[in-house]
Design a protein around this nucleic acid. Structure first.
Lengths: 206, 206, 206, 206
DNA sequence: AATGAATGAGTATTCATTCAT
DNA sequence: TATGAATGAATACTCATTCAT
């Protein structure tokens, strides 16, 4: 039926609209201080309608977080995929992350604030989902680095630890950029981070 | 007066007791889900008494966070102070942080969760305090690194960025350790982090 | 729209129901001892619903007082308006007040108790509103008396003072009636009050 | 024992001090918003000490009100006692009340506010006490007026009603004076009130 | 399907009173 | 006797969720 297809499409669009507004509000107020009424209002729906798209406030928040996080991982992977060569792939890992942060600053600020909180079932499962997603992402990065080790470009450190270090460096640059606002774009710090990661900060002994 | 001195001492002890219990409860439940009644109960005081030591729930949380953070910064600085030589100082920066995280895991988990949230006055001032403390700490680390640059031990990168990188590496190792529990102590990762920071991950070109 | 009109009507009815029950409870217990739960219960609404009709307990109390007071003033004025001649108008002023007191004893007892209290914003504004209402009412009575002075029926006392005296006499009769319950209606004291007001208590010298 | 006599004296002095401060605070904040801590502080005693002089907050308030009211009644009676002749006695009734109000404005404002509230035992008994005191006072005034009726100076109205009217006029003048602050003293309105009471507001027919 | 009024459980905070010191 | 820290009952208000229309 054509009808159901259009309905389906509309459903998704509206769902996305809600998610978009919710993200903004959660970013400003945090999970607890944001209210369903507020989100309903901002997205132009009634409170009741919100519950047609999401089971609960927890669920709305969870979906918002996890879907966006998935998007980030996906974006990173896609950009890395089209890159050729270890060096370019590593550059893309950093660049893609930075681009996502710049394009989704509100969302990322939510993580400065944290608040992946609450002891509820749903929230616990969110935390698990976040960790799983992170774990997979780590594995993805790890595999790229392994290639570098194999080719003798990278030192034979444990690849998982190296991946954690790379993501840690990316994260710390992003946090620093959000915490202490600067004129320069986050992306402009890409080379610095890459350089530190690749060559270390130690003066060449010669 | 002896009397007032003892009272003073008792006051501080009890205040610390409350803070200690509150930390545990906040760590498990988060700021919003933890209740004053729970904290009162856990610390063996009545609800009313809590308010003799702290103005409000916000205030209790703020004090708990900021005092512990101050303690961390202080502990790091003291350990670095007694170290001699750039290398040893940098080692101490990493070691002292790791030790603190191991000794205060509950507290640190609070930061995984984040939740330095709430749009209230008190919480806003807490966030400012956290940022100020971090900023000062960054400056402290930066000054140590500057010495290293001056002596030609470290590459002439912007010292502040290098400091941010070092703290970022420390943080990412700590987060990784808390997120994916391992048998090995966090401290055992010190040399790896230091090595990465100092020599980088790039294979020596030969 | 028919719908919104009915909604509107229902809203007003329910609001009035709450006000009516609240009046009784406040009359018995006073502002502070009355609880929102009690009022909710008595009016057959949930606690939450009370807050859909009134912003706060203070607000509920304020509206109840000021709307009823407005009603009293209005009723007095309407009855006076249809009266013809100074004598009849003055009679109506007394009669209308007494009728209101008899019909709204609970409400009036609230004023024996006073309790237009509380240092809150809302309550301060209530007190101002009460005074303003009283002031206007005084002016209304004053204008009627001025007519009597102009026609040489009343002694040329300051009209405002005379108005205050008349309302004072009305009030004292009402208070006496409420304080020391008697079989006779308050209205039956109308002629006495009027007589005292007009001719005083002094024996005619002859 | 001398000692106990001094103790007794001290006790009364301190009790009076508390009552004095309490009156001020109650006048400003009302019964419910005033706190025992505040009263303790203002009167220079500890909270615990307050309870050595008064059983409870209700009791403190009750005693403050009833003792001051007794004082008012007493002062009026004494001044009336030394007056000679009906006219002078009636003048004194008005003058003595007005003087008390001027000398105890804070206290009297408490009655504008009312708040002889609370459904507690103690408060109920206070209300009874106030009514009894008022009733006795009314009887006292009534007896003076009876004398006037007997001597043919006053119209043969029911004496109790006349007394209520006189006290009502006094009250309304006092309330008006407190509600709408004026430069003139309250006492300066004595003759007006007396004149209205005696001769009414009606123009003499001549 | 959409609405938004109604619900009521849940919680921070206050403050009269007590009692150990 | 005096103190004031400790107590905990009491209560206004919020907001996620439901469901009648």
């Amino acid at each position: 039926m054509e009808k159901s297809a259009r309905k389906e499409r509309e459903f998704k669009t509206r769902r996305a609209d809600i998610l978009e507004q919710a993200e903004k509000i959660f970013a400003v107020k945090g999970f607890y201080s944001a209210t369903m009424a507020e989100i309903a209002n901002a997205s132009g729906f009634s409170i009741g309608s919100l519950y047609q798209y999401f089971e609960s406030k927890d669920n709305l928040y969870s979906k918002m977080i996890s879907e966006k996080l998935d998007l980030m991982h996906e974006q990173v992977r896609e950009k890395v995929k089209v890159a050729s060569g270890i060096a370019e792939k590593m550059e893309m890992i950093v660049a893609a992350h930075f681009q996502f942060v710049e394009n989704n600053e509100d969302f990322c600020r939510l993580f400065l604030r944290g608040e992946n909180a609450a002891p509820s079932e749903v929230m616990t499962s969110l935390r698990q989902k976040i960790m799983d997603g992170y774990s997979q992402h780590l594995t993805f990065v790890e595999n790229e680095l392994k290639e570098g080790i194999k080719r003798g470009i990278l030192r034979p450190f444990p690849s998982r630890d190296m991946a954690a270090v790379l993501l840690g460096l990316i994260r710390s640059a992003a946090v620093d950029w959000m915490l202490f606002p600067k004129k320069a774009s986050l992306l402009s710090r890409k080379d610095f981070i890459l350089s530190v990661f690749l060559r270390g900060v130690q003066q060449n002994e010669t």
